[in-house]
Amino acid sequence: MRLLHTSDWHLGRSLHREDLLPAQRAFVDHLVATVRAERVDAVLVAGDVYDRAVPGLGAVELFDHALHRLAELAVPVVLISGNHDSARRLGIAARLIERAGVHLRTETARCQEPVLLADAHGPVAVYGVPYLEPALVAAELGADRAGHGAVLGAAMDRIRADLAARPPGTRSVVLAHAFVVGGESSDSERDIAVGGVPSVPASVFDGVDYAALGHLHGCQTINERLRYSGSPLAYSFSEAEHRKSMWLVDLGPGGEIDARRIDCPVPRPLHRLRGTLAEVLADPSLRRFEQHWLQVTLTDQVRPERAMEQLRACFPHTLQLAFEPELRPDDGLPSYAARTRGRDDTEVALGFVRHVRGSDPDQAERALLAEATRSVAVAAGGEL
């Protein structure tokens, strides 16, 4: 059986205010084309369909468009909710749209209820485990504590029990949205540490032939049977070096796994530049990044005026600008308390500007800061 494993679409998300819906629409086109060209038997979407619990209209319309196109191909789709999704909203009319071959698993109670598929070698049970918030589902699952490992372990125990009652030779696939030990994270994933340790051991999935994982945005292999597809697009500059893809998984007659990556379209590459403004603007070797989305970190000692305007004149797709002076004047004292001891408010304010900007305030700035601190002291009823 041939499965296409994808996740973390985050429909409706932007990249530093850059609208990504056109790129997400191109991904959906690519997904449908891949299903058709590779003769996929089922599509697995491992959570975070939307970027937020109440998605915008454009995101909802794109999701509706994707499901209609997949249904037209008569290819089953199994989809779970992730930590960005509202499980209840995503699961509206789930039992109704199952008639079209789209199987939404957003309810904890249905995690042990498989979607039953079959090929020439027999049945395949596909289980969907939605993102499990420990404090909300521990009692329902009978977990011994409210932790990520405990609730996912309890859900997997139910799945293994159901699988054991099925005919011998039934192969199994599980979709889950979780942080598995050994996975590498990026800056664009929402922290799920509430409820204790956020990660779960890979052993929690023992006994199934393939676990299609979602949540981490980098495509990666935990082991042969546990894989993250990653997000189809880069959603932060920490993903600049990611190769965005989906997994095309062939599930053999005895549960053997043969997986290969299908690359996703790249709307515009991401890159990070670092240096002084003059260096970045003058270096001819950087011209190859003119059409990239850029994060630029300037190391000038004094913050340049109109830095973003100058950068965008050469690199029109600069999205993020940061300032990190390479050298900061330091008085050599070890702590904040030591640096401020014996100094009045004006001197502390001047020292703060010096530390952040990397250079001393000029005469006009010194006068302005002195007047500001004096006014605050008078308002407070004291004197400097």
Rank of each mutant, 00 (worst) to 15 (best):
A211H: 06
R357L: 13
D258H: 15
L104T: 00
L44N: 02
R52F: 08
E383I: 06
D283Q: 03
G275Y: 07
V249S: 09
L11R: 05
A120H: 12
R166M: 15
E326C: 11
D119Y: 03
N83Y: 03
V49D: 00
V266W: 09
E383G: 14
E241M: 12
T221Q: 06
R243T: 01
A372C: 02
L277D: 14
D344H: 03
V348L: 01
F205H: 03
P168K: 12
E324N: 10
R25Q: 11
G254W: 01
L57T: 15
V378L: 14
A94W: 15
R354N: 10
Q295E: 15
H68Q: 12
E189C: 00
A338T: 06
A23K: 06
D157A: 07
A120M: 03
D258T: 15
H16R: 03
G342H: 06
A176G: 09
C264K: 11
T297E: 07
D29W: 01
A138H: 12
S238W: 04
R171D: 00
F179L: 08
S359A: 13
V75I: 10
L73A: 12
W9Q: 05
M246S: 14
A37D: 02
E224C: 02
R287D: 15
L216N: 00
Y210E: 07
G252L: 10
S229F: 03
R166E: 11
G230N: 10
Q112H: 14
L73M: 02
A307R: 05
M156F: 08
A349K: 05
S185C: 14
C111Q: 03
P114M: 15
V174K: 00
L116R: 15
L141H: 04
V43D: 06
A338I: 05
Y228E: 00
Y336D: 14
A53R: 12
D362Q: 12
V126K: 09
F323P: 06
T221R: 11
L270H: 04
V181Q: 15
A146R: 08
S203V: 10
A313F: 01
